[in-house]
Amino acid sequence: MSETKDIRIITRPTKEQIRQAQIDFAPRCTAAGRVNDKETQKMVQYILNFARKHSLFLLAYGTGCGAIEIPATLTSRYDAERLGIRGAATPRQADVLMITGYLSTKTLKRVIRVYEQMQDPKYVVAFGSCTINGGMYFDSYNTIKALDRYIPVDVYIAGCMPRPEAVLKGFAKLQELIQNGNAGNGECYRKNLDWYRANQQKVIKNWDFPDEYNW
């Protein structure tokens, strides 16, 4: 029974270490997107951000297991429409790309195309443990382990599965970020496109994206 002690002791890292690890891991568009310059045109941006935060057109990318939580969130029981959240039919019209659950490398390719077709300011909400660290698919040969290596993510909703209450909490967090001007990383993504493309091409083997296309 003496062996039970020395299995593997996880030392709890300090907050500073966690922050540094995060920066080392995905250094690009994690902290704050710069949608707008808050110093100039303060009043205009305040009004625009107010409108943006209360009108979120949601494109739910549900090929993972979490897709079943989205209808519950949007329909009568939890009624996300009272917060201004409604479904969008195409990426061109959408503001929020919601990725529910795991992403296989095959679907990651489609997600990137969808993300690049959306118009700025655009937000990404990653839903479920699988998008954060792989979840129960941590040793699967065909699913990615951390979404923010491939596209910038604004809000993570942890859980397996997160209930609709958690989804609404995540949207409340997103609204807070939008009001402060800290959400929406489309500009940052285009600026750091080389870094993201390198990560994407490491995973997606049959790369057939056009080199330059109309965003």
Binding site: V35, I47, L48, F50, A51, R52, H54, S55, T75, S76, D79, E81, R82, G84, R86, R92, D95, Q117, Q119, D120, P121, G186, N214, W215
Partner: peptide, 27 residues
């Protein structure tokens, strides 16, 4: 549908947000 529903002025907010988009793709 037994929901609360969006506020009556929701369409104005939607319009303001759509006009506040910073990029627009054209064909």
């Amino acid at each position: 549908q037994n929901r609360v529903g969006p506020p009556v002025y929701q369409n104005f907010l939607d319009l303001l947000k759509l006009q506040g988009k910073t990029t627009n793709v054209t064909h």
